[in-house]
Design a binder for these strands. Sequence first.
DNA 1: CTGAAAGCGCTTACAG
DNA 2: CTGAAAGCGCTTACAG
Lengths: 341, 341
Amino acid sequence: MDQSDATASVRGERKAPATIYDIARHTGFSPSTVSRALNKPGRLNATTERRIRDAAEELGYRINPMARALPTGKTGTLGLVVSDITNPVYFDLVRGAEHIASEADSTLIFADSQESARLERSIAERLQTSVDGLLLVGSRLGDQDIRELSSVKPLVVVNRLVDGVPAVVPDVAPGIEAALGALRERGHRRIAYLAGPEASWMNTLRWQTLFDLAVSWGLSIVEIKSTEPTRAGGAEAFQRIVAADVTAVFAYNDLIALGLLRASRDRGVAVPESLSIVGFDDIFGADLPTPALSSIRSPLGELGERATRRLLTEIDGAPAEAGAALPTRFIDRESIAAVRS
Amino acid sequence: MDQSDATASVRGERKAPATIYDIARHTGFSPSTVSRALNKPGRLNATTERRIRDAAEELGYRINPMARALPTGKTGTLGLVVSDITNPVYFDLVRGAEHIASEADSTLIFADSQESARLERSIAERLQTSVDGLLLVGSRLGDQDIRELSSVKPLVVVNRLVDGVPAVVPDVAPGIEAALGALRERGHRRIAYLAGPEASWMNTLRWQTLFDLAVSWGLSIVEIKSTEPTRAGGAEAFQRIVAADVTAVFAYNDLIALGLLRASRDRGVAVPESLSIVGFDDIFGADLPTPALSSIRSPLGELGERATRRLLTEIDGAPAEAGAALPTRFIDRESIAAVRS
DNA sequence: CTGAAAGCGCTTACAG
DNA sequence: CTGAAAGCGCTTACAG
């Protein structure tokens, strides 16, 4: 229900917020002095600073960030645009970014491109004029678009590499190697990769890394398309997985893996006895089903921290420091087992 | 790894973005005319409008929303602050809000208060000067704080009622009644409510509604505290649930319910045979465990739409239209069963 | 230590 | 239909 009526008491009574001019009038100082008192503590006569601060407090003054941004060019806020704010993958990344942003006294705001490249572009452009820098995670944009955005304001992409733009990505190899190794030890020889969106850079990286390793180990490996990177997409691929006659499958992400897991159970294919499944990302919920999903986890929190730090240095024009690799690791739960002989 | 070097190519080459003055110079018209051409299509000589638009395009002009906001007081953006952006509960709500915002050509930005009232207040204050209105969902703030925020700019609270401020909340009764009814039919007489945060208005509403109904039906009902509204909090409460000697428990939310479910299984208490569990919110993942969680679902998407529409009318100063009730409903999956005789 | 002035990028009465 | 001017709220050289 709406609580429509209670509203009347507030409506229309909104008083214009106090400005530095109000404080100036109130204290007899000039607006310049007020501005200094509020922004450069210690640079003024202590008592005038005191009086101005008190007046500000009394009048309920809050700085107008947009008015400040005009002369300074700095908004004090960072933007994080994700391809799908509704995807649990990004939770830790968000936390990491928040952590660093707050250390730097920047406000972090989020925007959601809802998996649409068109929307992503317009949101990023829009946001760009209102923030000091942008974090683009899981971007669906083309390299050229990203480069153009990057040329107008500091920007760092996460989980993707684009020539000429700062990026931070995890090292997927360790996790994949551990998972594939665990499978090989358990006798698996025929493996499938259930792919993600073709436009996803990360999808290509995962597939390529897995492919190279499997080949070098003499395992057979096939890529199987999925319709969408969701549980529905995973379920939909079930028949094609079965038809491919593999004993184990890597899924592009946990959503797909979860969908496949469920479909397998529903259609009577036992996981992990008849089919081993490993996902990517270790999202919220991966440990919920029976069997719990084994998954390759990115150090998302650190990715978020690193990316934000990178963005901050980019904004300051400071040189970027090289960072250590951010290795993925394999979280082995219950969805893989020895192949039946 | 960081891709530090590739960056050099971009660094420092950022050209100042084009302004309407650049366009003016470029076309020979005045800035006022440029402004009009860009904002009031049709009000100008068609060919001058054409030429100005072409020049804008050519120069890669993008309006500076903050500069525009100063004289107009309108930013064209709406803010949504959630108590925990990492909680799957809000997914549908976000989608609903996005839907309405985009229909109104407003940009929706998000901010996360990380379950901290202090942070929530400062973020809300900060954001308020940069948006046309604010949506506060699952606020941890006191009524008075919310009222103060509401007095400076349009604001609507979601999932909570505060005297004097526009709000939209679901009707929890139908879902609770259906769930409790299902339990009663199956012979349950002793019920527990595993509570959420005391500061949560929604927690109080759920408990109160459940309590009143149980009492009126002659069922016994107890409230059991939890340490936090998470899976860990649910697991931690397991022993107290067992000690309370109830046959069914309602959990404040699905996170708690999921934690309890898992703890029960781990400690050898069969769900639903020995203990029936029902959660709230039907979040992502509720259907994943075995048994799948039965849960009371809010029409979150509609809540988000409704709240955003309400905010928009508040911004326009239009009168609010009363809305129909937004009933919850019971999604009965596998976590409840008849009490063993 | 403090103030007057110019400027950030835009909009909008007010004239013409 | 178009332009000159004032103003939105702030900051920051430049003087004093």
